[in-house]
């Protein structure tokens, strides 16, 4: 199957003081459409850097990144922003909901940034919240929601543009076990419907659930287990 993401000899170096840190060191990776991939590894192993790079929040120092058949290695800031908006959904450990906006408005943000007309937005947001059992919470502010509800709002926001790839960075890190399981099941359901899911986690139990598992160490893919779709 044609890969949705392909990284070729990707390096990412950081200058820390007078020392160069190789956060990513010659990473080669192909991720197929519909893959369920977990990235694990100790702190500083480069798993977050890899996620940021795939999410186009960061740029490779060298190497090539092909997303959906398009070379996105050296796009301008504006072009990257458009791709983030359309093709990539982010789910963060800290939810990152805008506290002054309601749940519905938070979900609406990507559509707003894309410039979609109001009436179209409203029905899409309603449908999305409905699917995540949040319809009765639409007009609540984040501080009126439980942790699990907040993360579900964040997932609704990440998927509202129907992106090809969903990136989750410790999605259960701030949740109790039950809410965490809810969230994981939702993410896995989305994956089952075809979205490519990449989860970065410390949590071995969560990591094991993925069909394909990467272990990173010192900026390299140390071990790879499981299978692609």
């Amino acid at each position: 199957m044609k890969p949705v993401i392909e990284l070729r000899q990707v390096h990412r170096d950081f200058q820390v003081g007078d020392q160069v840190v190789h956060a990513l060191d010659d990473v080669n990776l192909k991720i197929a459409t519909g893959d369920y991939l977990s990235i694990m590894g100790p702190s500083g192993s480069g798993k977050s850097t890899l996620l940021n790079l795939i999410g186009l929040l960061d740029r490779a120092s060298s190497g090539q990144y092909i997303l959906d058949g398009r070379d996105v290695t050296s796009l301008s800031d504006g072009e990257q922003a458009v791709i983030r908006n359309r093709s990539i959904g982010f789910v963060f450990q800290a939810f990152h909901l805008v506290p002054r906006l309601t749940a519905a408005e938070n979900v609406e943000l990507p559509l707003m940034l894309a410039g979609m007309p109001l009436h179209e937005r409203r029905s899409r947001v309603a449908k999305s919240l409905e699917a995540l059992h949040l319809a009765d919470r639409a007009q609540h502010k984040p501080d009126q929601l439980s942790g699990g509800q907040r993360q579900r709002v964040a997932i609704a926001r990440a998927t509202i543009m129907e992106p090809a790839v969903l990136l989750a960075d410790e999605p259960t890190g701030n949740l109790d076990h039950r809410s965490g399981m809810d969230v994981v099941e939702i993410l896995e359901t989305l994956n089952a419907r075809g979205i490519t899911l990449i989860v970065v986690t410390h949590d071995a139990e969560l990591g094991r659930r993925a069909r394909r598992r990467l272990h990173m160490l010192d900026g390299r893919i140390h071990v790879e287990q499981g299978a692609t779709v």
Binding site: D77, G78, A81, A114
Partner: peptide, 10 residues
């Protein structure tokens, strides 16, 4: 940071 991740340009 969030708005940038959601696709807002500089």
């Amino acid at each position: 940071g969030l708005l940038r991740a959601l696709g807002a340009s500089r």
